[in-house]
Write a protein that binds this DNA or RNA. Sequence first.
DNA 1: TTGAAAGCGCTAACAG
DNA 2: CTGTTAGCGCTTTCAA
Lengths: 342, 342
Amino acid sequence: MDKSAPRRITIVDVARHAQVSTTTVSKVLRNAYGASPAMRAKVRRSIDELGYRPSAAARGLRGQTYTIGVMLPELRNLFFADILDGITAQLAGTDYQVLLAPGCNGEKAEARVIEAMIDRSMDGLVLIAPVSAKSRLNTVARGVPTVVVGRHGPSTTYDTVTDDDVAGAALVVDHLADLGHRRIAHIEHHETDPVRLREMPNAQRANGYREAMRARGLGDEIDVASTTYTQQGGYLGAKALLARPVRPTAIFAGADVVALGALEALADAGLSVPGDISVAGYDNSALAAFGPISLTSVDQDGREMGANAARLLVDRIAERDRRTTHVKLTPTLVVRRTTAAI
Amino acid sequence: MDKSAPRRITIVDVARHAQVSTTTVSKVLRNAYGASPAMRAKVRRSIDELGYRPSAAARGLRGQTYTIGVMLPELRNLFFADILDGITAQLAGTDYQVLLAPGCNGEKAEARVIEAMIDRSMDGLVLIAPVSAKSRLNTVARGVPTVVVGRHGPSTTYDTVTDDDVAGAALVVDHLADLGHRRIAHIEHHETDPVRLREMPNAQRANGYREAMRARGLGDEIDVASTTYTQQGGYLGAKALLARPVRPTAIFAGADVVALGALEALADAGLSVPGDISVAGYDNSALAAFGPISLTSVDQDGREMGANAARLLVDRIAERDRRTTHVKLTPTLVVRRTTAAI
DNA sequence: TTGAAAGCGCTAACAG
DNA sequence: CTGTTAGCGCTTTCAA
């Protein structure tokens, strides 16, 4: 077993082998203008014969690295995985490679990861549900093409892709109201920061819930338990709601995990779903679809969001001064077995 | 809003600001030998004042990129996420940044991703459950420090971290046998390739099952349904087993998803678990732990595996010609509510 | 211990 | 259309 890895083939080797200049090889690599078909063919042949692969590090020093960085708060969230699928699908066939950083929950970790990606000369960034301050996002986006996914509020420095959370919440409220429910409660993720209150999906869902309730003439029935978007948050939220003088007949949880926790609390209380009480979630994760759970939930089509994000990013890399665009997709409701007529 | 991103601070700026040579700055950056404490302090101050960040691309051209690439077949697999947690936890506090590539299932995608990582001058690679040919892995490992996780079979070019799948299978068989079961069937992932038959965890589990059955004097009861490690595979496998002249009293599924599919098939057949039949899985994923499912399963401690992998990799980066080491961890059985005495 | 200078592999600007 | 040349920002000899 020979230890010495043979010296890596470089652009110079290819140029020599093909009897052309390195410039020409470079042009072929980048599909750039200014090389005759004959030259191209010759260079391509040499590349294949020598098994040449351009060094991204070296390219990055002058031009692009053909690398796109994706930051997402939590790998275990299946919705984020869908977004990622959309991104990679959209980028398949291009020269771009997607790389992602694991576990970036919290403003600090987020900052570190974004720095790391900039240090590595990534051509563009997709930030999924970032929690950083807006000014920080703007600074980042001014330095490198950036698309923000899942955070509302337009920007003039980065493109955004969001799902209409207000509409999503309305879907749930309307569905439950159509089933005859009036006392429809909501479990939200507690938020105080004014910017986030405007931009984060959880806040939008809570707003959407309130709006929709009023629109249905149920303004007096508005009842919100403010916890967190975790299973435990759902459990505690449901407990709190069950302790009300008049118990709600339906719970709209702001996320599927929250609904899961709520289901647990209801089971503990000896209540049947949807017999005694209806429950709906948000995200239509695999958990919601899973047979024994079968949770009514709002579907966001993460793949579509990811594909849009990738498209916007590639466009912006090509034309950095382009005006920003903001894509807002419309969610749908997937009715399953946790909601029923009162 | 000013458009022009200010020119990035370089090592030259720092050198000028600190009134030293770029060489000295470089030494400080790398904690390399040959700079006095006074110099170090001065340089560090300038770095902070200027907000300097070294460019990984430029560093990579001569030295390291301080980037470690992780390849894993499937982001949605929670066990892999645990491994990742272990890797990042172990690497926290070092200068290394972990980056991973999404969706590398299949030999072709795997090859593409590995190439991409090599192109980007990653300092080291962690390959989780790779399916590539062994010769390919050796070639890769000869070029860049590599640790292979979750694939048996020692190598002289790369380190490995595995869990003892044979022992894990035995845990399940012994548990079920202790409960009085004799007709214990197994659903395996079909495998024909001789190398994989020796190296892949699924094959090891099937072997472990057979061995343990014989060790308990149940050699005649060995019954294997050969499908795939998917939910559907579990469904079909269980269907097949239920069609036997004498139905098994317990099913050992090679993975939790498989067990899930099996549970579905049993429900379809009107059988109760564990009343009519016991079911055990493998991986102890979040799904297994989830209350309503509560699946008895083998736990592999992915975090520990990841931490080991990271440690080995960092060691090998520091000393490339070190002899390879092979870490084999021992699984444990988590008994839940899908297994009971016959 | 410190620094000057020569690349690493590639792309961009410019000449021919 | 093709080639020459000068860097990109860093690390690494090698002298001082």
